[in-house]
């Protein structure tokens, strides 16, 4: 563990908590892409199956359980509890165009052709594009509530901090994982446009 990864995990946790609070407090999921949240649940499910097979640390196991619970909790709030506020009309990104290429790519490019490894690789690829429906929805509605933009800023920062973690681990532990690094860079680059808007003028209330 290093400070970059710890800050990244905290930023990730913060993003998920901000989202849950936004939906719970406003009792509305307006402006939030349910499709992205479904993709995140698939990402965590595919990646954290090793919860049952390999124990890394209490921190690792607890965080995995928190991310899984929060992502399914968000889906419950969006599609069941506050279903009426879900904005179907603007949440239209075709997620099959994200899932299928990730499935194919994880079968072609991976570290080891075993079920858990393929699922992990699939989850890494899918996570890098999982935010696209949300960014697409924000661009379509032309605005985002300030709380939603804070959510996106925290979520985008988490993987950017992980890139610093990978640089640190490369020099300090000569450990690196090309698949995670390339996907992490793609994921962070997708936020660049949003980061620019968020930092320059705060995209809410346009």
């Amino acid at each position: 563990m290093n400070v970059f990864r710890l800050l990244g995990d905290i930023s990730h946790l913060l993003a998920i908590i901000i989202l849950l609070l936004k939906i719970w407090k406003t009792r509305s999921c307006a402006g939030i892409s349910g499709r992205s949240q479904v993709l995140f649940a698939v990402v965590y499910t595919a990646r954290y199956l090793d919860l049952f097979t390999s124990y890394i640390s209490a921190y690792n196991s607890i965080m995995k359980l928190v991310f899984l619970a929060a992502s399914y909790g968000t889906i419950y709030l969006m599609f069941i509890k506050f279903k009426a506020s879900y904005d179907h009309n603007h949440d239209t990104f075709r997620i099959e165009f994200l899932i299928l290429p990730c499935v194919l790519l994880s079968l072609l490019i991976n570290h080891e052709f075993s079920p858990l490894e393929i699922l992990w690789t699939f989850s890494i690829y899918l996570e890098s594009v999982a935010i696209l429906p949300q960014l697409f929805m924000v661009s379509k509605t032309g605005e985002a509530e300030s709380i939603t933009s804070h959510y996106l800023f925290a979520l985008g920062s988490y993987r950017a901090l992980y890139i610093l973690n990978w640089i640190y681990r490369y020099y300090a532990e000569s450990h690196y994982d090309v698949i995670a690094i390339v996907a992490g860079i793609v994921q962070t680059v997708l936020y660049c446009d949003f980061f620019y808007l968020y930092i320059t003028k705060g995209i809410y209330g346009q």
Binding site: D9, I56, S57, N60, H111, E117, W120, Y162, N165, H175
Partner: peptide, 10 residues
């Protein structure tokens, strides 16, 4: 080569 038990990241 990176394998499963190396996966200590979230």
């Amino acid at each position: 080569d990176v394998n499963l038990d190396d996966k200590d990241e979230l």
